[in-house]
Write a protein that binds this DNA or RNA. Structure first.
Lengths: 119, 119
DNA sequence: TTATTATTTAACTTAATGGTTAACAGTCAA
DNA sequence: TTGACTGTTAACCATTAAGTTAAATAATAA
């Protein structure tokens, strides 16, 4: 199970890589909705939406329960959080490097000035 | 050009959806590197790496300059930031909703208790 | 010049994605 | 029971993705 975490990031980012799926998530982030409601803004067939729902579900970004003939869908934020965290970690690293460089340059400039003053 | 922003998110998330490409970015987040250095941890052919580099470049997540026969590659953090921001916004919305729900439930519980005390 | 190293391009295979239409299954309401 | 509504499955098509090997280009080293 070494790379099951990796694989779930594959699925999550893959799911986010399509505007319809991001649209569905955006809609869900303001509350639960049925499949038809989620489909409304998009000019594609119902089966296409079913497939997008499947991708989101497989990625663990969305869950649903049946309520009569409609499905109530809701956002699963945990996976979204994991994806966000991955990005955040990379950026944090990078920013640390930039910060360190900046500090170094400042110190260096300080030392250069000190030297200039000494002689 | 309405959805060029959308399209660049497609590319960014799509690029993040592969473990080799995430590995490359992770490596880059601790400093610049050549293509061969980036390729080393992965058991795929050089042309495969070239393709992954292209995907990352097209997504604007990576840039490079030629230095003799090697290419020095570096992370472009702006796109990474944009992707992070998109996720963060969805989650913020959702958390607001959950917070509101929690507040509502607490208030409600308080009122219920008050009522119980009265009679 | 010749060989070596770093990287890309070309051509190809296989599998996955994203869409379609047509048909099916469950649930509700007349 | 019949019909309408919500959603899925099946079968198909076109495009893209991810890998391969073989050959090409470009820069350095011998």
């Amino acid at each position: 199970m070494v790379n099951s975490q990796e694989h779930s990031l594959d699925l999550a980012f893959g799911a986010l890589a399509h505007p319809i799926r991001r649209g569905i998530l955006a809609r869900l982030s303001s509350g639960e909705a049925s499949v038809a409601e989620l489909a409304k803004p998009f000019r594609v067939s119902a089966p296409a939406i079913t497939k997008h729902m499947r991708v989101l579900e497989d990625a663990g970004l969305l869950s649903r329960r049946k309520e009569g003939r409609r499905h109530r869908c809701r956002l699963e934020e945990r996976r979204l959080k994991e994806a966000e965290l991955w990005i955040e970690r990379q950026r944090a690293f990078w920013n640390d490097r930039l910060d360190a460089l900046e500090r170094y340059l400042k110190e260096d400039a300080g030392r250069a000035n000190a030297n200039r003053r000494i002689r």
